[in-house]
């Protein structure tokens, strides 16, 4: 039992959960969206500062939630900076597939690869493989189905901000 829990609550997660990075409201943010998980009451706002070409200059968030949702939001904002919009979306898809244990691209690829085949067609753009490696610490949620939404809330919210949607709910 403890092993599984240790796998979910790894040091990195506890650290990000206790000391979330980029927990702030950037004054120059030009995109934002609110995410909520009505089941547990978690709420957060994701702020993005996008350049004219869609590059993420700054990413931050505010809100409160469990260790998993805080750590996920914290790590996400760290790795979004400097990424293009396409890269951010690619990371979201890979991360989402990792958390749910489903490779949503398997149909396109025509093969099944549930273990590590989280890459979209054509593979991840440069450098994103390393980010996915870092995000592996959150893969433990697969053993805790009700917690998957905690891990993906900030990512859904980030995509909503990019799409210009004000609110997203993981109900």
């Amino acid at each position: 039992m403890l092993d599984e829990l240790r796998d979910l609550y790894q040091e990195v997660i506890l650290d990000h959960g206790k000391n979330p990075r980029n927990l702030r409201h950037p004054p120059d943010a030009n995109r934002e969206a609110q995410g909520s998980n009505p089941m547990c009451g978690d709420q957060l706002t994701v702020y993005l500062t996008l350049e004219g070409d869609g590059t993420v200059r700054d990413a931050a968030f505010e809100g409160q939630g469990c260790a998993i949702s805080m750590a996920s939001a914290s790590m996400m904002t760290e790795m979004l900076k400097g990424r293009s919009e396409a890269e951010a979306r690619a990371l979201f898809h890979s991360f989402h597939a990792m958390c749910t244990g489903e490779d949503e691209y398997e149909d396109h690829e025509g093969h099944e690869d549930h273990g590590h085949g989280h890459a979209p067609p054509g593979g991840l753009p440069g450098g994103l493989e390393d980010e996915m490696e870092r995000l592996q610490v959150l893969a433990g949620v697969r053993q805790f189905p009700v917690r998957v939404k905690c891990a993906t809330l900030s990512w859904h919210t980030m995509v909503a901000a990019m799409d210009g949607e004000a609110k997203v709910s993981t109900e």
């Binding site: 039992m1 609550y9 469990c66």
Partner: peptide
Amino acid sequence: AGVHPHDIATILDRSGVAVRAGHHCAQ
């Protein structure tokens, strides 16, 4: 202190202990 109720409930659940975590329909 320092632990979100949702994390408490997950760890308790793995010990076989079922408790409710959340706003209890009383936000």
